[in-house]
Design a protein around this nucleic acid. Sequence first.
RNA 1: GGCCCCGUGGUCAAGCGGUCAAGACACCGCCCUUUCACGGCGGUAACAGGAGUUCGAUUCUCCUCGGGGUCACCA
Length: 489
Amino acid sequence: MNVRTRFAPSPTGFMHVGNLRTALYAWLWARKNGGSFILRIEDTDQARLVEGAEETVYRTLKTAGMDWDEGPDVGGEYGPYVQSCRKNMYLPYAEQLVRSGHAYYCFCTKEELDERRAAVEAEGGAFKYDKHCLNMSREEVERRIAEGRPYVIRQNVPADGEASFDDAIFGHISVSCSELDDMILIKADGMPTYNFANVIDDHTMAITHVLRGMEYLSSTPKYNLLYDAFGWEKPTYVHLTTIMRDATHKLSKRDGDATFEDLIKLGYLPEAIINYLALVGWSPGDEREFFTMNELIQAFSLEGLSKSPAIFDHNKLRWMNAEYIRRMDAEAYIERALPELKTAGVGAMAETAEAKELFVRILQPRTEVFSDIAGIVDFLARLDEGYSVELFTNKKSRTNPEVCRSVLNAVIPMLEALPDWTENALHDSLLGFAEAAGMKNGTVLWPVRIAMSGRTVTPGGAIEIAALLGRNEALRRLKLGLSKLDAER
RNA sequence: GGCCCCGUGGUCAAGCGGUCAAGACACCGCCCUUUCACGGCGGUAACAGGAGUUCGAUUCUCCUCGGGGUCACCA
């Protein structure tokens, strides 16, 4: 079988990660089977169009590493790929259903319907269209159409019997026809509804596997009535579980959950996001966790798809992103980190090859997300001189104000006399002093690092920081630290 | 509310009648160490509840409970 899958977003805004995962699974399934992945834009709701949303879809898919064989921008044999451009294709199919008795014209206005709905709901009932226009004579229908009265075309759902379909992961789903409403196929503006356009498009585009969100699970039996009415072969349905923010809320842009592009801006790597996302709701069945796109294509299977919703775990995404960052080579890392260093105001410190290497060494194992960097290194650009003298006291390093004062008093002139301000020289000098003084390394290095950073937690240690700061600034900070200690006496 | 779907540690998730119920994230402890991080080692922690079926249920069935979805001229 020539597998054809599609991703059919409506251009109503940004692409959240749930959508992206749907696209990913559809893409993987097509690629795994040597089939085609089709991009289709579902813009039948003219009121909800959002400027630029289509480009966002293209951009997101591309940076996520997915390509498409057919779509609005690349064309294809089954075009057009934008539903509004296919507008004229749907009506004939709807009329065919009218002729075969599977659909009918309806002249009830939205206002009338709202009224009836309100009345029924006021009594606690669930409104269902009452087939009010079903038995209108042909002549009457034609007369009204000739008068120019607005109308819709509705599906004529049988009064009884079962509607059902088979889902690749949920199995047989069956619902009684009496539960089903006569859904609108063609709207008053002549546009098809999503429900109808979907059936027509999936069929005319020869889609073999429909991967889409869970929210369509309960309406799919209705679609199948349509397939049966046309006598068409049904695609394989694969309904994907929802990605949740927590146990009771799904992820949504509206509630401030990050979109794919938000995550990219925050400094997440596309490969890490995709890798993580693939694992939310799908398992390869073994213990592997790291996948390249090609490995995902190999490993992907419908059987590995989960039936229950999954909560999006930012924590784990962060961890996975950190893993990807650690695996970058130094060159790629510094290229990505440099802009962050610049915004932190330490770009000038990262100009030489040695300095770059040093930054990579201290930063790469500590970077979970690139946007973290600025906050980690900003102290290098500017010392917050108001730091508390209490920072000098650290039990594990066996320091107290008295010890720190004497260390700094000894170390400042020693470093001033250092011929070369290099990591090696600083290392030998500082550790040599510790040994000579019979102190733990930490006892010497702690006050030096605190004075130079004003922080208890820093990337790298005293030696690295001193090297980065350079002789003048490092000594200035050491002297400042000493004077703070003296002032406390 | 009707209908549909789901229910293994805090989270992801393996399991598909017989397991001491994997693994990962997070958390905790220890080691390494120039703080933190990285790395190494170890630990806490789960089959929602109740009936069945069966020699035997996490696994099959039913009920309860919990959660989600859906009931638009939105997709």
